[in-house]
Design a protein around this nucleic acid. Structure first.
Length: 899
RNA sequence: GCGGGGGUGUCAGAGUCUGGUCAAAUGAAUACGGUUGAGGGCCGUAUACCUUAGUGGUUGCGCGGGUUCAAAUCCCGUCUCCCGCACCA
């Protein structure tokens, strides 16, 4: 048994020695940028990583072999909390910890045979990288895209830092799952909302992104068109603004809801008898939010605050409620409630016994308030709406909006769910925000020539707060403007800033004049194929799109979208559950490699499931992959002497040779298409099928050495993107030159495959030709018996056409009727033509005619055939060109044998 | 509620866009035979049902209907599962 690990080490060393995966910009070659989401350098790689890289590497290798200039880099998302936690718990330097992990992980990646250009490695925690985070921050600041603001922010008590909205999932921290609290803090934001429209509209152009990622982003941006309407408050000069997408229901407003935390609430209840109750209510809601933030959709809670608003269009007085179902973060924090046409308002109104008013009815039905059991939200006709009555509600939206704008009672607006990106983090292990605070000058950005602002080493991790604050050498500084005493910003940047542009840095990783070399970026970008987990559907993928657009507007590059095609890989599960330490179902890739070698691990991962789907890890599956590789290896090894790399002489070929060659060409076609579409498991199953056939061919008594050489060579080349080490070894074994990793991808010969008709017209033409041939035969040769071999989707058309022809010439018709008694008017009888139609199980049916016996020799009954009917084989071989024609019949194309 | 994706043989999992070469790739499992001291491994054969020497036929891809000469594939209805977001006014 071959020692796969030994083979792997040997070839890895040779690749490294010749440095064969290094790339440069080459305008003459077509480029391909293949990228995996760069990993966080935790202590070990897990199988999810392995899957990610196996997918990317297979594609990168494939593209390389197809003549592309392939940029395939690797780097590390090296800032972040785990390093800092390790520092706190084990008193190690986060930098040492991180760099040691990077070393270990890249070693594993090399052992797996990933064909990265290692000269482009980046690690986000070193100053040569994070300097550019700061540089861009300053650029953003200069353009007003970075700003500091005091607002209510999400605070994670577990990570002891604030979080961006995107990092809060169902009220919990995305990383540590602690329930997020709300804090009022002054923080740095990036103005992603400036790009809300573009980020949303450009989703349309992302043709090769998964639908669900696109919809997730659309929902997250959450644009809705509507109108802000101003309501007067009764007995007061105060006015309140509300946002609605349904101004057509304005006449149906019966009450008004304000978010409890809305600042106007305090003013409205000040010194009224409701004041105390309202305060109590607000406290209660806050408390509930903290504990039950996850599911508060069930029961709506509210309270009347003793005041009223006036409906601007009809003067109706509507009571004002504060209620937990109005949220401050969306719109204006105030809702005009239309219970008849909004389900939430309806439920609330029923609970608090508020009045209902129908203003839209379905076309041929009358709605009655007291009979309604739910809100009517479909389209309909306006009623009870003065001069807007009888309008279709869709039109009414426009008309009423026009009216409100004319009377200066409202203004059309667009609302987004998307908030600005909060990037401040109260943590040490990240990029320092390059800003100082001076008592005289205020917020002062660090000048570009003073970058990078280095992370200090003299910090104390045990303090509980942000360790940076404990470094006085860092905190105390001079103001760049007035040279007076100043204080450095101690917050660091969200690590998602690092990952928002790393793919640009790979294009020119050593460039030191700007964040990247514009020329290199314009050559390599956009990323042709991006591969990563679905968990970044909004976070990283939205930020990266935002950065790309912002950098474009800073004239640093001219790319609109960073990732042309996106593939979100599925999870790896085992025994029906996600791999996790607590369940004890974790598989360590190192063990698999130790036992079976890296090729087996790669092959299993790619073969077990399509990349997008869940992969169920199974140990027997791994064994199966290993068994296959052994079979493949010994097929080549055992038949070495039967291989010739010389040219095939097509005149010498028998039907068997032709058959295997046509199979080979089919395979090349299928594998190429499958890899192109990332359907690796299908490509591999095709290769397995092919190799089984090649093995059978190898077992034949006499085989064509050139043909066999071609078959084996092809199998090695097409396997090499999946199992590169073994393929290098076999490539070398059959005495092919160079590395198979750099070999040319085979092209298939169209003439060797089905001549599949492009159009039905073309096919019909073929059919007619064949019919003409039959009719000719009948006339000239007057055969006793005629056997037709027709298969595939065209057989029906064939017979229909045949029938037409026969009807044209009466005497032929008579002959045909004699030959084919079952042939009748009813076209269903096509199936009754069974004796005449022989299915086509292999690519080339061998047809034997001997007295009354007709045989269709299948692949799997070949043995039986040879054993029992040897004499008949002779007959076939002796036959003339007519039978040869039948032998070469391809699926879908009728063939005829005349006796 | 809104949105995205599924349901195929003993199991995992292709095939559906573009209907016919589909009783359905590939792998696993099971059974029998060969090789082997046994086990493993390897090789061969079989694994919906009925039938044949080869073959042919019946049923069949969640369920029910429809279109078609022809449906796993197209259309309509229905059941069911998974996943994202969610009091978005």
């Amino acid at each position: 048994m071959p020692d796969f690990n030994k083979i792997s080490k040997k070839w890895r060393a040779r690749w490294e020695e010749k440095d064969i995966f290094k790339v440069f910009e080459d305008p003459k070659k077509k480029k391909f940028y293949c990228l995996e989401m760069y990993p966080y350098p935790s202590e070990k790689l897990h199988v999810g990583h392995l899957r990610n890289y196996s997918i990317g590497d297979a594609l990168a290798r494939f593209k390389r072999m197809n003549g592309f200039n392939v940029l395939y880099p690797m780097g590390y998302d090296a800032f972040g909390l785990p390093a800092e936690n390790a520092a706190i718990q084990h008193n190690v330097d986060p930098e040492k910890w991180t760099l040691a992990n990077i070393k270990a992980i890249s070693e594993q990646q090399k052992a797996m045979g990933m064909s990265y250009d290692w000269s482009r490695k980046i690690q986000s925690c070193t100053p040569d990288y994070y300097k550019w985070n700061q540089w861009m921050f300053l650029k953003f600041f200069g353009k007003g895209l970075a700003y500091r603001k005091k607002s209510a922010v999400n605070w994670c008590p577990g990570c002891k830092t604030v979080l961006a909205n995107e990092q809060v999932e169902q009220g919990k921290c995305w990383r540590c799952k602690s329930v997020v609290e709300e804090k009022e803090l002054e923080q740095w934001f990036l103005k992603i909302t400036d790009y809300a429209d573009e980020l949303l509209d450009d989703i349309e152009s992302l043709k090769d992104w998964p639908e669900r990622v696109k919809t997730m982003q659309k929902n997250w941006i959450g644009r809705s068109h509507g109108i802000d309407i101003l309501f007067k408050i009764k007995d007061s000069d105060e006015k309140i603004n509300t946002f609605t997408t349904r101004p057509d229901t304005l006449y149906g407003v019966t009450y008004f809801v304000i978010a409890p935390e809305h600042p106007i609430v305090e003013k409205l209840v000040n010194k009224t008898k409701c004041e105390q109750d309202v305060k109590k209510f607000i406290e209660e809601v806050k408390r509930e939010e903290l504990s039950e933030r996850i599911d508060r959709t069930k029961d709506k809670k509210g309270m009347f605050i003793g005041r009223y608003v006036i409906n601007p269009v009809n003067g109706d007085q509507c009571p004002i409620y504060i209620a937990d179902y109005a949220v401050m973060e969306y719109g204006t924090g105030a809702v005009m409630a239309v219970p008849c046409h909004d389900q939430r308002d309806f439920e609330f109104a029923k609970k608090y016994n508020l009045s209902l008013k129908v203003v839209i009815t379905p076309k041929n039905k009358q709605l009655k308030e007291d009979e309604m059991t739910e809100a009517f939200v479909d389209e309909g006709i306006l009623v009870n709406s003065n001069k807007f009555n009888d309008l279709e509600n869709k039109k009414a939206i426009e008309k009423i909006s026009d009216f409100l704008e004319e009377k200066k009672l409202g203004k059309r607006t667009v609302n987004y769910k998307l908030r600005d990106w909060l990037i401040s983090r109260q943590r040490y292990w990240g990029t320092p925000i390059p800003v100082v605070y001076c008592d005289k000058c205020g917020i002062v950005p660090v000048p570009e020539n003073q970058l990078p602002v280095l992370l200090p080493k003299d910090v104390n991790f045990g303090s509980g707060g942000n360790p940076l604050e404990t470094s006085s050498s860092f905190v105390n500084c001079k103001c760049p403007k007035c040279k007076g005493k100043a204080r450095r910003e101690t917050d660091t940047m969200d690590t998602f800033v690092d990952s928002s542009w790393y793919f640009l840095r790979y294009c020119s990783p050593k460039f030191d004049k700007a964040v990247f070399d514009k020329k290199a970026v314009n050559y390599w970008m956009p990323v042709n194929q991006y591969i990563g987990g679905i968990e970044h559907a909004i976070l990283h993928l939205l930020y990266a799109r935002f950065f790309t657009k912002a950098l474009r507007d800073l004239k640093l590059c001219n790319i609109n979208e960073p990732f042309k095609r996106l593939m979100t890989q599925g999870m790896v599960i085992k025994d029906g559950a996600k791999m996790s330490k607590s369940l004890g179902n974790v598989v360590d890739p190192a063990d698999i490699i130790k036992d079976y070698g890296p090729d087996t691990a790669r092959l299993f991962i790619l073969f077990a499931a399509l990349p997008e789907k869940e992969l169920d890890w199974s140990d027997v599956g791994v064994k199966g992959a290993f068994k296959f590789l052994n079979r493949f290896y010994s097929l080549v090894e055992d038949n070495r002497e039967k291989i010739s790399l010389g040219k095939i002489d097509f005149k010498q070929l028998n039907s068997k040779d032709k058959y295997v060659l046509s199979i080979m060409n089919h395979l090349i076609k299928d594998v190429t298409e499958n890899i192109e579409q990332l359907k690796f498991s299908l490509a591999i199953s095709g290769i397995m099928q092919y190799i089984n056939i090649v093995a059978k061919y190898a077992g034949e008594k006499s085989i064509n050495k050139e043909v066999f050489g071609e078959l084996v060579k092809t199998s090695i080349v097409v396997m090499s993107p999946f199992t590169p080490f073994i393929c290098e070894e076999l490539w070398n074994m059959i005495k092919c030159k160079g590395f198979v990793s750099l070999a040319e991808w085979p092209k298939y010969d169209k003439t060797m495959i089905d001549e599949k008709a492009e159009s039905s017209e073309e096919m019909l033409d073929n059919v007619r030709k064949d019919i003409a041939y039959i009719l000719d035969l009948i006339k000239v040769e007057k055969p006793k018996k005629l056997t037709l071999f027709v298969s595939g989707k065209w057989k029906y058309k064939f017979f229909r056409e045949l029938k037409k022809e026969i009807e044209k010439t009466r005497d032929v018709s008579a002959i045909m009727k004699a030959i084919i008694p079952q042939f009748r008017e009813n076209s269903k009888d096509v199936s009754k033509l069974v004796p005449l139609i022989v299915k086509n199980p292999g690519r080339i049916p061998l047809v034997i005619l001997d007295q009354d016996i007709e045989f269709n020799v299948l692949q799997n009954s070949k043995k039986l055939f040879e054993d029992e009917f040897k004499s008949i084989v002779e007959i076939i071989k002796a036959e003339d060109s007519k039978q040869a024609k039948a032998k070469n019949a391809m699926p879908g194309k009728p063939a005829i044998v005349v006796e």
